[in-house]
Design a protein around this nucleic acid. Sequence first.
DNA 1: CGGGAATAGTTAGCCAGGCTAATGAGTTCT
DNA 2: AGAACTCATTAGCCTGGCTAACTATTCCCG
Lengths: 160, 160
Amino acid sequence: MATLAKQMRSNTGLATQLRVSMVRLNRRIRHQQDPGLDVTFTGLAVLAHLSREGDTLIGELAAVEHVRPPSMTRTVAALEAAGFVVRGPHPTDGRQVVVSITDAGQAVIEAERRRRDAWLAQRLAGLTDDEREVLRRAIPIIERLAGRSDPPTDQEDDPR
Amino acid sequence: MATLAKQMRSNTGLATQLRVSMVRLNRRIRHQQDPGLDVTFTGLAVLAHLSREGDTLIGELAAVEHVRPPSMTRTVAALEAAGFVVRGPHPTDGRQVVVSITDAGQAVIEAERRRRDAWLAQRLAGLTDDEREVLRRAIPIIERLAGRSDPPTDQEDDPR
DNA sequence: CGGGAATAGTTAGCCAGGCTAATGAGTTCT
DNA sequence: AGAACTCATTAGCCTGGCTAACTATTCCCG
């Protein structure tokens, strides 16, 4: 099966296939939203980031989620209104805004993560070990394609 | 051992990682849209389906893309207004609507496929052969997770 | 064979969450 | 001190999901 020519040719369709399949699964996952929970999808992504990485600036959140600053401002405002994050001043730079997750936000992210992942985990359980291993190895590659290969870069407090 | 509980737990972690990385790449890919092209993202998915599978009913399109019928009605209406599809009556069932791609639509899907490939090919070029192979094998699995039983067919090389 | 149930699609209207442009406030540089 | 830059925000637009309600057609059963 693996002649070089064929591999090159199917590389052409790789973009299409990857894109289409990701869109479908993404929509599907999104659809598993808990209707009773008043936090939105992108809100959860932000909470997850805060939960993992700790306090984060608005601009950083926007960058890491590949969204423009105004979009992140709105998302954070909604989260703050719901009591899941608080915004505080940056200690040295008055322009910047530090976003922190609250206990309530932490609880929400944990509960929702459990609920949401239950669906995917159930689906994953229907795969073979080999298939799960393929996915496990695909994830960092997907992250890299999305432009986020760099792990903890820490030089943002004092851009100096 | 390999108790079910243990397996579920590791599946949950995998689910979280997969979900987050997919959201990011999805947003990133969407962002690569050609701004000069007057066909939207989901419109392209529909055109791609019509190009692959031929004439399709509105309801089928909605089902395969995991959206509700009203959403697909709107998407198809936009495509028809742009001249990329035509809608015709079903030969025997007056309720159903058959959607067909036009030559213009075919041209659009091919041009867009080329354009999109340029971006992703650049990204894929930064991967090793092994990494690309991982992605290639992950795609049908992702499709399966999204609820499609049949794997994506690979017969869409561009004629160039 | 006639009328109610079921089905396919549409219409109307809501909402989330992207975006750009313009503005304000704070910082940095000369 | 003042210009220039940077971070965040406000204002306003647009896409594209959704549900509810409606129309048209077909199916089925008494």
